[in-house]
Nucleic acid binder design. Structure first.
Lengths: 356, 356
DNA sequence: AGATGTGATGAGACCGGTCTCTTTGCTGTA
DNA sequence: TACAGCAAAGAGACCGGTCTCATCACATCT
């Protein structure tokens, strides 16, 4: 009948202790599973606790122990399959080790990232995993270290920070992709990233404040230069609409590239759609390569050549390193660089007849 | 040179108070932004706080206020685009309202869900959003209500629970899909879901402990019965491998369905691959419909007919209802049923010549 | 027997905030 | 001048655990 909303306040150790006729300390020992208690007392306390529906207050516990058993994770966008996969890796490892995950979305905005980090620290997470939106605007990350909490970087390295990091082999991957395209005869290749703001003109790697992207662009440009091939970088593909606009602009003119490398699967998808809408055949008139082996890339026609990134493993690695730190492991910061693999599929199978 | 790890303990209100020459209560008033303090004192305290690098301890704050400013979210699998999109909706709303999100993965396992819920309650989240793995095994959800915390169900209704829920129009959607396929001439249609365990044989809606799936299957079966068409339900497509096996089994025999409805985009993707591998042309020999308008469904050849679910909005709606409760809104539980839309694409464009 | 050790329990401080209640000092008013 | 009224600040309890230290009974050792 009634929904029993106005239940009396939750039972505390003190309540249980009183009801069981023992001291608060003893009840706490039983309920908190520490110290040593006789079996008789233990059973009695446990029975009473059950009776009173005692539920521990983890907040109070954290308060005295100083540990919350929680790790904070700040990613750019959980909707991006890249991050959701990484987060899955993190939370699987975390759970196995008895940790919980507090998630925060930065939307790739440093201001949001800053406030997310601040809040996580205030909540006394034991450590953090962050994929920093910027690798220069990092004083909030340094702040964390000052509080004594370990932090691990995910996917994006920051040289200035002496912390554990798990990243992919971005530079080599991008270089390999560029080389592949060049070998296929392409002489005008573009790299499209969500980094930067829409409309921003690329002037050099210095414009790229996301470490992983900068590495990729550097690898890409290196390969292009090595082969005397034109390499263009376009920024600001931050959403479907913007990406579409850039794609149209890129593919429209005379100087349109014959191959495009998409910095993530969301961008690749939009490029794919744009090419279709503009009647630009893939791979004949346009080759496409995508960073991240998103599940759909193998079912399109043509299927899409991808850089397979160990995304889930990146999350796992980051979580493992962090948890080791939390468990007291000392030593110099480690930087795990996980290998990528270039999976060649239909979207790069075309040959460029004329431009050679 | 040194990494300054062994910093002295973080400053507390008491430290600030002492250094500023005021009482703890006054410093707390300034730092906690409550009560009334003179401007002179406020400025002095704030200056000292900055000097001492005071950072509030949200744990201690929550402890006395009883509110943590956090909502717990338990989903089946964040890696599933369905959930990652919903989680994004939740966290956007939460952040706007000043709440944080603690995420837990249940892996669609009730035991994990139970422990996740328990832990979230122990952490004193203010409220929970859960997409329950089972709609019968729910005593842990009832427990939550007993603690006085509101809970909102995401995507999956549970009749027995008098709580807010945000679900999609599953039954009608499934019915519409079935009708579409029947209108296209299909007389043998299968529905494939991740619900259940691999190998489990479907004996009736009672086998389906996930509410949304049961609704869909009921809508599907209804439509089939109404039209005297054979409708088959297959369970246990819980991962790529299992899905592939079921797909092979389903498509292999003489009694193979001419149309399959996939309960989520992960299943649809595997079905798509399986059909391709088995040289079963879509849509000519097999029609395919997918629940959830995953981004890739529009770029395959043929593109995939989908039930567009308002996933992000589902998350938003759930979060909004929960937060309203947290802000004190009373009243009967609400059940928001968000409309779906059937988007017809190439995968159902085929006609069935013979079987008619 | 007396000293020593040990296992079980109790008493109470403590973590870092919030919040209630009290005290203080100043202004306005009869 | 005396006192009400009020704003500002202080004292200290409290939240619900953990943890140190003290106490006590009883077994062991010399």
């Amino acid at each position: 009948m009634d929904d029993a909303k106005p239940q009396k306040a939750a039972a505390t150790v003190a309540d249980v202790a009183r009801a069981a006729g023992v001291s608060k300390a003893t009840a706490a020992r039983v309920l908190g599973r520490y110290g040593v208690v006789s079996d008789a007392v233990r059973e009695r306390v446990e029975a009473v606790a059950k009776e009173l529906e005692y539920r521990p207050n983890e907040l109070a516990r954290s308060m005295t122990t100083g540990r919350s058993g929680t790790i904070g994770v700040v990613v750019g966008d959980i909707e991006n399959p890249f991050f959701s996969s990484a987060v899955r890796g993190i939370s699987d490892v975390a759970r196995a080790a008895g940790f919980n995950v507090v998630l925060a979305n930065s939307g790739e905005d440093v201001a949001f990232e800053r406030s997310a980090v601040k809040m996580l620290v205030a909540k006394r997470v034991d450590g953090l995993i962050v994929s920093p939106a910027s690798d220069s605007d990092i004083e909030h990350l340094i702040e964390i270290l000052k509080t004594g909490r370990p932090i691990t970087l995910l996917d994006r390295a920051v040289k200035e920070l002496r912390v554990d990091m798990a990243t992919a082999d971005d530079r080599a991957a991008a270089s390999a992709v560029a080389q592949l395209l060049i070998d296929r005869g392409h002489r005008n290749i573009a790299y499209l990233t969500a980094c930067g703001v829409p409309g921003q003109v690329y002037r050099g790697p210095v414009d790229l404040y996301t470490a992983s992207v900068r590495e990729r662009v550097e690898g890409f440009i290196d390969a292009c230069n090595r082969n005397a091939v034109q390499g263009t970088v376009r920024l600001g593909a931050v959403g479907a609409k913007q990406t579409r606009a850039i794609a149209k602009d890129l593919l429209d003119g005379d100087a349109a590239p014959s191959a495009i490398i998409a910095s993530d699967s969301l961008i690749a998808l939009e490029l794919f759609k744009a090419a279709r809408d503009m009647n630009i055949g893939i791979p004949d008139r346009l080759a496409l390569v995508c960073f991240h082996d998103a599940d759909w890339t193998s079912v399109t026609s043509p299927s899409v050549t991808v850089v397979q990134q160990p995304v889930y493993q990146l999350g796992e690695a980051a979580a493992k390193m962090l948890i080791e730190r939390l468990k007291g492991k000392a030593g110099a910061p480690r930087h795990q660089v996980l290998p990528t693999a270039l999976i060649e599929r239909g979207s790069t199978a075309g040959l460029i007849p004329e431009k050679m």
